Amino acid sequence: MLDGAEDAEGAKVAVLARDITPLGSDITVSCQVLSVRQGGAKGSLPICARADENTGASVGFVTPETTRQKPASVDLAALAEATLKVRAEARRPIG
Rank of each mutant, 00 (worst) to 15 (best):
G39M: 12
D75N: 14
P93S: 09
E53A: 12
T55Y: 14
A8L: 12
G95D: 15
K85F: 02
A14H: 04
E89K: 14
A80S: 08
A51H: 11
D26C: 00
T28D: 05
A72S: 14
V13Q: 07
V86P: 00
S58H: 01
C48W: 07
A14T: 08
A82H: 03
R68F: 08
P93Y: 09
T83E: 00
L34H: 02
A17P: 04
V36H: 00
C31F: 06
L2F: 10
L45G: 03
S44C: 04
T21Q: 15
D7G: 09
K85Y: 00
A51D: 11
D26R: 08
V59N: 02
E65N: 02
M1H: 15
I20R: 01
F61K: 04
A82W: 03
A72D: 12
A77G: 12
R91T: 14
G95A: 15
P71G: 05
T55E: 11
S58Y: 04
G24I: 09
S58A: 13
F61P: 02
T55H: 09
A72K: 11
D52E: 14
A11H: 11
Q38S: 01
T28L: 07
L2T: 08
A8D: 09
P22Q: 04
N54L: 07
T63W: 10
R18C: 06
L79M: 09
L84T: 04
A82Y: 00
A41P: 05
C31S: 10
M1D: 13
A78R: 13
G95L: 11
R37F: 10
R92G: 07
L45C: 11
G95I: 13
G4S: 03
Q32K: 13
G4T: 03
G24H: 08
D7Q: 11
S30G: 01
E81F: 03
G56P: 05
P93R: 13
P22F: 00
E53M: 10
L23T: 14
C31R: 04
A14D: 09
P64N: 07
L84K: 06
G60I: 03
L23H: 10
R87Q: 14
G56R: 05
A14Y: 01
Q38W: 07
A49H: 00
V62I: 06
A77K: 14
I20L: 13
K85M: 01
R68K: 12
P22A: 09
A90V: 11
T55C: 02
V36M: 14
T55Q: 12
Q38C: 02
V29G: 05
A49Q: 08
Q32M: 15
L2V: 09
A41C: 05
N54I: 05
C31P: 08
R68W: 08
A72L: 07
R18E: 15
R68P: 02
T66F: 00
V59Y: 02
G95Q: 10
A49C: 10
E89R: 12
P46Y: 13
